[in-house]
Amino acid sequence: MKKQRRTFTTEFKYDAAALVLDQGYSVAQACRSLDVGESALRRWMKQLQSERGGVTPITHAMTPEQQKIQALEKQVKQLEQEKEILKKATALLMSDDWNRTR
């Protein structure tokens, strides 16, 4: 039987990494108390440290600031796509208008 892969919320990952980085727990202690693998916890710690350093991650952000940045980047991308669509629609309408007046 295949073992089910566990998933963790962003808040859980943040809290787990903060145990080691902010509260002085060792990695082994935190892994035992939270029942998570050491490699996963180290990965979350590395992500949290880089986010605190101002690096926006490719995956889901942990810190509220980085989450806000990701949401704003997504909104900018959507607005740029909408702007391109409007440019093309305007050009198409203008060319139809031009052809009718000839």
Rank of each mutant, 00 (worst) to 15 (best):
K2H: 08
K2W: 05
K2E: 08
K3M: 07
Q4R: 14
Q4Y: 08
R6H: 07
R6G: 03
T7A: 07
F8L: 05
T9H: 05
E11Y: 04
E11F: 03
F12E: 09
F12D: 04
F12Y: 10
K13Y: 02
K13Q: 12
Y14T: 08
Y14E: 13
Y14Q: 12
Y14K: 13
D15E: 15
D15Q: 15
D15A: 12
A16R: 01
A17C: 08
L19D: 07
L19S: 05
L19A: 05
L21M: 12
L21R: 10
D22N: 14
Q23V: 06
G24K: 06
Y25K: 09
Y25D: 05
Y25F: 15
Y25A: 05
S26W: 08
V27A: 07
A28Q: 12
Q29W: 04
A30V: 02
C31I: 03
C31W: 00
C31Q: 02
R32Q: 14
R32M: 09
R32H: 13
S33Y: 08
L34M: 07
D35Q: 12
D35K: 14
E38L: 04
E38K: 13
L41E: 01
L41F: 01
R42K: 12
R42L: 06
R42T: 02
R43I: 01
R43W: 03
W44I: 00
W44Y: 03
W44S: 02
M45Q: 08
M45C: 11
K46G: 01
K46Q: 09
Q47K: 04
Q47Y: 00
L48Q: 02
Q49A: 12
Q49E: 14
S50L: 14
S50E: 14
E51A: 01
R52F: 01
G54Q: 05
G54A: 06
V55N: 05
V55P: 00
T56D: 04
T56E: 06
T56K: 06
I58R: 10
I58V: 12
T59P: 00
T59Q: 09
T59W: 04
M62I: 06
T63Q: 00
E65T: 13
E65M: 08
Q66S: 12
Q66P: 00
Q67V: 08
Q67K: 15
K68T: 14
I69P: 01
I69L: 09
I69S: 02
I69W: 04
Q70A: 04
A71N: 11
A71H: 10
L72A: 13
E73I: 11
K74F: 10
K74Y: 10
K77W: 07
K77A: 14
L79Y: 12
L79E: 09
L79M: 12
L79K: 10
L79V: 05
E80C: 07
E80H: 11
Q81G: 10
Q81L: 09
Q81S: 10
E82R: 15
K83R: 14
E84D: 11
E84L: 13
I85T: 14
K87I: 11
K87P: 00
A89Q: 15
T90L: 13
L93M: 13
L93I: 11
L93K: 12
M94S: 13
M94E: 15
M94Y: 09
D97L: 10
D97H: 06
W98L: 14
N99P: 00
R100I: 08
R100M: 06
T101C: 03
R102C: 04
